[in-house]
């Protein structure tokens, strides 16, 4: 297990990382399993292998998996498995619809998978519902192209620590990924431009050679007194 931070993770308690909801079922479950700090949590390979895992609900398990992934990303630099960067047309649809909102859905996205607990998901949904209704009243439309846009919007408006801490990790990871992609694209573009230039030169050279050959043949035909090719 390679840890990239110069901190004693044994001294970092589950509460310190601020990803768990205070007195939430998820953190209580981990403590029942003797896990009280980040190092102990990172020594687990799979949340589902913990004893008594069946004692918590499916959504609590999903939340735990999401948080587990965030922690592994934060402290071990592991890639996030849940992809919050893809386009989500349904998010755009629901949030830009002019219908009044009494319910909100993220389509195929289960926010528990992102590490949000049930009460956090409820708060996020309630916030979005009220915002959407406000937008509808003002007859304005807000559109989100992807879930990361929703996260950025929530970050600006929700102050609950356990939600903001998770949003911070996602947004930070997104920014890093975006910069890496931009850097990669720049290199790729540079290589393509070089190839383009080389090919253009090669094409021009061929054109010159063809013109020379045609001229030679024309001269030959002229010398032969206009004999048909």
């Amino acid at each position: 297990m390679e840890i990239n931070k110069n901190i004693d993770l044994q001294k970092v308690s589950l509460e310190d990382i601020k990803l768990f909801q205070n007195r939430g079922r998820e953190i209580e479950f981990l403590k029942q399993n003797g896990i009280t700090n980040v190092l102990e949590l990172l020594s687990i390979t799979d949340i589902d292998l913990l004893p008594n895992i069946a004692s918590i609900t499916t959504s609590e398990r999903a939340t735990l998996r999401g948080i587990f992934e965030l922690i592994r990303h934060k402290y071990l630099n592991e890639e996030l498995i849940v992809d919050c960067f893809f386009d989500v047309s349904k998010v755009k649809y629901y949030l830009s619809s002019k219908e009044a909102y009494n319910n909100i859905s993220f389509g195929e996205i289960n926010l528990n998978r992102f590490g949000f607990s049930k009460s956090e998901v409820d708060q996020i949904n309630m916030f979005l519902i009220s915002k959407m209704n406000e937008f509808t009243r003002e007859n304005s439309v807000v559109e989100f192209g992807s879930i990361i846009d929703v996260f950025a919007y929530l970050k600006e408006n929700i102050k609950r620590t356990s939600i903001v801490s998770k949003l911070d990790i996602y947004l930070d990871s997104y920014q890093k990924k975006k910069s890496q992609k931009e850097e990669f694209n720049q290199e790729e573009l540079e290589n393509l431009r070089k190839t383009l230039l080389d090919l253009t030169k090669k094409r021009d050279k061929l054109n010159e050679q063809i013109a020379l050959c045609e001229e030679k043949l024309l001269n030959y035909y002229e010398k032969m007194g206009g004999v048909n090719k």
């Binding site: 061929l206 050679q209 063809i210 050959c213 045609e214 030679k216 043949l217 030959y220």
Partner: peptide, 9 residues
């Protein structure tokens, strides 16, 4: 095209 022209020549 060039190959064909060279062959003709």
């Amino acid at each position: 095209q060039l190959e064909q022209l060279l062959a003709k020549i």
